[in-house]
Design a protein around this nucleic acid. Sequence first.
DNA 1: CTTTTTATAACATTTTGGTGTTATGTCATT
DNA 2: AATGACATAACACCAAAATGTTATAAAAAG
Lengths: 209, 209
Amino acid sequence: MDIISVAIVEDNHDIRQAMELLINGSEGYACIGAFNNAENGLEKIPQLLPNVVLMDFNLPGMNGIECIARLKGEFPDMQFMMLTVYEDDDKIFMALEAGASGYILKKTSPGELLDAIRDLHEGGSPMSSQIARRVVAYFQKQAKPNPALEALTSREKEILDQLSKGFLYKEIAGNLFISIETVRRHVHNIYEKLHVRSRTDAVNKYFNR
Amino acid sequence: MDIISVAIVEDNHDIRQAMELLINGSEGYACIGAFNNAENGLEKIPQLLPNVVLMDFNLPGMNGIECIARLKGEFPDMQFMMLTVYEDDDKIFMALEAGASGYILKKTSPGELLDAIRDLHEGGSPMSSQIARRVVAYFQKQAKPNPALEALTSREKEILDQLSKGFLYKEIAGNLFISIETVRRHVHNIYEKLHVRSRTDAVNKYFNR
DNA sequence: CTTTTTATAACATTTTGGTGTTATGTCATT
DNA sequence: AATGACATAACACCAAAATGTTATAAAAAG
């Protein structure tokens, strides 16, 4: 069982110290750095190269998201755990996009925190199942295509797909072995069915935006 | 503590019966239907209206994904748990897009299965942290914007954003209080920097496609 | 003093809107 | 089996609008 090296970025002194004590007092874990703001973390973490970084959301100056994004860009293998009191969708997605792989709440018990750190280090994404639901919901929202697209014939969908790839009319005509006039006709019908007046609007509907 | 009604769709007779026995033998759970294929499930589940449906992936005839998608469309509040042996990204994303909110492996222990059912019913998304990592990775993949966009000046980004929304040049000119000729110029510069020759291609780069 | 933003002007190309035609296949009803 | 109604898919022409290219250059910002 290897030792997991951990760094902490957390502005609250008590919480920071408590986590440091917890980690250093547990076998298999070592806290090799603890910082009270993002700027200090950004400066020192590149030298320490911890396996796992626990990051607070709200920090004085640069916030935790930005700090993760910068470090993750430089050290893609470093694992980041967002540690926060927030359960909003926005905050969750921002953290994940920035490169956090774990997202747990501060009220998490010491034992669970240690488990989560190990889990993260071993390739999991520890998060509560409530938070997982938010992430899943985001997927499901993205998935459903615009119902107006269903009204298109299969040929029209094909044309729309070509439009979305930026082909000129004459290129579409060539690709589908039809005349440019036919392409125009189809495009016209597509616009009518989608209630749009330009290629860009049609493509936006196609991609559900 | 209310009783959670569960339906099962699973073609393997032994597994199906074992799950039925487990659920009916546990306080707070009731298995109100068990089906050996998707077609039977689709027919009966609308009358049973269970709180939770456990769905196998591979079924003879229609697969479990399709079955979930159809039922979820009709009953958005019904909760679906994918129960499978597969850990591939494709299968996971297909299940989530179809409307499954939980995704657990068949090797999961009876006790954990019951916990997962309750968790799902109470608004969580039970999944192993390995599977959560796949979902999170998908997020992170999507997030990184095209670096070529960074070469654009802030004004150019503004113009590109307007382009992406489908505005005509003259509308963009009106929105930004500049002349249409200036819009033309900016668009031209944007195209050069992004190495594209059309609005659609530029917008596709903007949205990272 | 370089980059960015703004502006003109002339031009070619592409796209869009409007109004047609022809052929084919499906489907429900006669 | 024949009919009519309707959808799809293909092709055509004209005019107008929008987009893309090129060249040139002057404020504004840093």
